[in-house]
């Protein structure tokens, strides 16, 4: 993981910050420079809610080498009240119990460990609601 790129992604990876178009109200996660809907360039920073609804998911059995110790794991897309969809790993759940439509919660987790000596990458995963 490149440290400069990592730092740039902190606002959305750590705080779920999204950009809301000041003209048409469209919400983008991660943020964009130009609104896809109306072409406007001014945005307000908003925070995505911590609960989303699972729209679809898949179970990964042969992941990329960095994630092979976690196999098998679920990867899901949740829709949030702000209108955005976010993709993340679903953890702390029996894979047989993952259901489309279930409510999931965003939790701060370690996403990647760059070998023995590189930086630790943090961000969000989905977990069942307690």
């Amino acid at each position: 993981m490149n440290p400069a790129r990592y730092a740039r992604e902190i606002p959305h990876r750590y705080r779920l910050e999204a950009a809301k178009c000041k003209k048409c109200g469209a919400v983008f996660f991660p943020h964009r420079l130009i609104c896809l809907k109306c072409g406007h360039r001014q945005f307000e920073t908003i925070k995505i809610s911590e609960h989303g609804k699972l729209e679809t998911f898949t179970v990964i059995h042969t992941p990329a080498s960095d994630f092979k110790d976690q196999s098998p794991f679920a990867l899901g897309i949740c829709k949030f009240p702000e209108g955005v969809r976010i993709t993340a790993q679903i953890v702390d759940i029996d894979l047989e119990k993952v259901r489309i439509g279930m409510k999931l919660q965003v939790e701060f987790r370690r996403i990647q460990t760059d070998g023995h000596a590189g930086i630790l990458s943090y961000g969000y995963k989905f977990v069942p609601v307690i």
Partner: peptide, 16 residues
């Protein structure tokens, strides 16, 4: 703690 939980992640969730 599972491998993706550490002192930093536990601290963030407790602080939230």
């Amino acid at each position: 703690p599972p491998p993706d939980c550490d002192t930093i992640t536990l601290s963030v969730e407790a602080t939230k």
